[in-house]
């Protein structure tokens, strides 16, 4: 017998995808280079599901990324580099 499972009444399923939490914390984001050999490890190690496999390559959904750097740390080919969001003047402004 197939019956649809009940949905949470107060929240639409997956509604946090449109307004993700925590992306304002991001100070760096991953850039995937051509060295990627599609081992797909990063798609399972990303806590936020920001790295997905699409059309034969790894795509980054920047709006979901919190910039933790797990993907760059775990990549066996060193194909992922973390790039700072802001590289301008830093320090105390007068």
């Amino acid at each position: 017998m197939v019956k649809n499972l009940p949905v949470v009444p107060t929240a639409k399923a997956g509604s946090l995808v449109e307004t993700p939490t925590g992306i304002t914390w991001r100070v760096q984001y991953p850039v995937i280079s051509e060295k990627c050999n599609m081992c797909l490890d990063c798609t399972l190690f990303c806590p936020d599901g920001a790295l997905i496999q699409q059309e034969g390559k790894i795509e980054l959904i920047l709006s979901l990324c919190k910039g933790c750097g797990i993907c760059a740390n775990e990549c066996k080919e060193n194909a992922i580099q973390m790039v700072p969001e802001y590289s301008g003047v830093q320090g105390v402004f007068r």
Binding site: L16, V17, T19, T21, G22, C46, P47, A50, I52, I70
Partner: peptide, 29 residues
């Protein structure tokens, strides 16, 4: 193999955890 796993994300996208949360990784896997 990872390529055979379902592509749908049933948990994790836009979650409210810290960046680099181990529990979120466990939930997604």
């Amino acid at each position: 193999s990872i390529a055979d796993l379902p592509k749908e994300e049933l948990f994790g996208q836009g979650n409210a955890g810290c960046g680099g949360c181990g529990a979120a990784v466990a939930g997604r896997q």
